[in-house]
Design a protein around this nucleic acid. Structure first.
Lengths: 133, 133, 133, 133
DNA sequence: GTGGTCTAGACCACG
DNA sequence: GTGGTCTAGACCACA
């Protein structure tokens, strides 16, 4: 599992969404500890070479979602108790990704087993152990 | 595998791209035979309830990619030898999609079996039968 | 100088125009003798693998221009005295071709001398002798 | 060489193609520097008095060809390393155009000097100075 | 502000 | 009939 944020500006997925998902991932993985400060908007923007407004948008959404907490004058921090997605939200988000991958694989002419095999390889590379990564 | 094109105008992915990928799938699956005519721009547009320019864009891209062949004044046809991705390209394209889905699922806290189960559901909805479509 | 008609259906120039210009060229070069019969519409269409209507359009224009003569029930023939283009028409047609080539060369980043050199090579290959081919 | 884009809506060649070739020329000539921003779609459309979608089509094709780079929400830029045709490709592309023009001129009964003279006139109208632009 | 998508409809060239 | 081009204008996502 990567421990650092990376974004691909050429990707179809919006940059702000890549940042948002990346932060969620790092928080879930413990790479960003609860209550710990996250990089400032300007700092992260400079690191990722993106527009500060883009980072700000991701942080704002994460704050709205209760993953981050802004303390005026101090900075931005990981919430002590980052929320878990509601079941239905989580499910539909998962389904969305599954749809994308299924369409992608079918377009390439792959069959079901080949697609799953490739997924398992990718899953292992994330640092998983066959179950929860 | 579905034998008919369908598009979802509410989807985030552009309609022209849905058409392009759908045609690629049908050609790959043999549902659209080599050298055979594809529906005319206007006809398909009427079927799908979209603007002819949208279909034309998809056809144009497919012609640029060598999948379709436009004969002026006659119509649009499947190329006799639609380009097949080289094995390594196909593999890496599949892997890329698998990576995206694995990351996505991991971000949501799903485990491997849940992700595969969701993928299978999505695959079936494409019209697949569990094996080679 | 080619002695046979060839057309390129993928070219930007319409097929009927390629045929029309080809016939003019062959007549001017003497490859199609004055008063001699030209291939029938169907025959030429079969040879060139184009739609008979396309050949018919070229022949009709050539007949209108006085280059060919249709004798009903007998066939189509080269006129005994094919007309010469009026000076202004000829000039503007020449200029049009020059414009196309100049734009083409400039887009490729060629300089004037290189473009002329390439033209001279092409001209010689047509069978010319440095002057009228 | 012209330093500014101009289009002729009455010309047979599509406006989007005129724009595409014009930009290629300006980039090749260095009038549009590597990495520098090109006029925005709307701005250029206003300048040229054409529809923004027409400019967008040209830009899109140039981006696909690697000449321009689109940065979402920021604008469109000249690529740092716009692709140069390989020598042999460039040569054969030039030769192709030369062939077309030679054939065209010969069809009109022009001699070599007349054809070159007309070419020079056309070249000057592009803004050339008789040598490398 | 930027570019991308889509619609509706006109007009043209080609076969 | 076919596809291609262009316009006018709306709406969206992104930075």
């Amino acid at each position: 599992m990567q421990r650092k944020l990376v974004v691909n500006p050429s990707d179809a997925v919006p940059v702000w969404k890549q940042i948002e998902e990346g932060v969620r991932r790092l928080v879930a993985a413990g790479a960003m500890a609860r209550g710990a400060p996250v990089p400032s908007v300007r700092e992260l923007a400079k690191d990722l070479r993106v527009n500060p407004a883009t980072v700000a948008k991701a942080y704002r959404r994460l704050a709205d979602a209760g993953v981050l907490k802004v303390r005026r004058g101090e900075g931005t921090f990981v919430e002590d108790n980052p929320p878990v997605l509601r079941k239905s939200e989580r499910r539909s988000a998962l389904r969305e990704g599954a749809d994308r991958y299924a369409t992608h694989a079918a377009t390439l002419g792959a069959d079901r087993d080949e697609a799953v095999k490739e997924f398992d390889t990718a899953w292992k590379d994330l640092g998983g152990d066959g179950g929860r990564p």
